[in-house]
């Protein structure tokens, strides 16, 4: 059985719940007072859906502005990107549009995009309407789903949907080579050029 490796990264403003979504997905747990992520955290999760084995390699990036410049490092080699916003914070949805624009310009053209409206359990405090987000996603051909890491709503389906779309994409593009049991769908657009710095100017 082929293992489909999926490299994906989570982007979005600080405090929208990127790490919470990942934790819900990987450990199926929720911490109400999640700490800030420092830099980026790397997690993996293997799951079997419809007879296919998906191995997710997840980069959970930090949302603070100072890490903004590092984002390309994570989305450049990724097959999929999840842009998370907080449905109770209009400004975080605004950031989604900026991320979409940036990914369009700099990421691989085949990257699968997903927009996740997190904190879906806080319906009373909603600031971003479902329709608005749906329209935005449609115009970019992205998956759109509202999730709640706290109440475990739609988190797994978010990842499954990405997996499904990626494998379909791959099937139409090329047939898996018969002798390899690992099918890699990382859509690397050539190795990124490394500017090797010497050891800090010494």
């Amino acid at each position: 059985m082929a293992v489909i490796e999926i490299k994906l990264c989570l982007l979005g403003d600080s405090g929208v719940g990127k790490s919470s979504i990942v934790h819900r997905f990987v450990y199926d747990s929720f911490r109400p007072y999640m700490e800030n992520t420092i830099g980026a955290a790397f997690l993996t999760k293997t799951m079997i859906v419809e007879g296919r084995t998906y191995k997710f390699q997840i980069w959970d990036t930090a949302g603070q502005e100072k890490y903004r410049a590092l984002a390309p490092m994570y989305y450049r080699g990724a097959a999929a990107a999840i842009i998370v916003y907080d449905i109770t914070r209009e400004s975080s949805f605004h950031a989604v549009k900026l991320w979409l624009a940036e990914l369009k310009r700099h990421a691989s053209p085949n990257i699968v995009l997903a927009i996740a409206g997190n904190k879906n359990d806080l319906e009373d405090l909603r600031e971003v309407s479902y329709q608005e987000a749906q329209d935005c996603a449609k115009s970019h051909g992205a998956i759109m789903i509202e999730t709640s890491a706290k109440s475990a709503i739609n988190v797994a389906s978010l990842f499954v949907e990405i997996g499904r779309r990626l494998s379909n994409l791959d099937m139409t593009m090329s047939l898996p080579s018969s002798n390899s049991n690992a099918l890699n769908v990382n859509q690397r657009t050539g190795q990124d050029v490394k500017g090797r710095r010497k050891c800090c100017g010494f």
Partner: peptide
């Protein structure tokens, strides 16, 4: 100061 290092491998400048 960073509890979150316990949860996953991290990569930070």
């Amino acid at each position: 100061a960073t509890e979150s290092f316990k949860a996953a491998e991290s990569w930070t400048p």
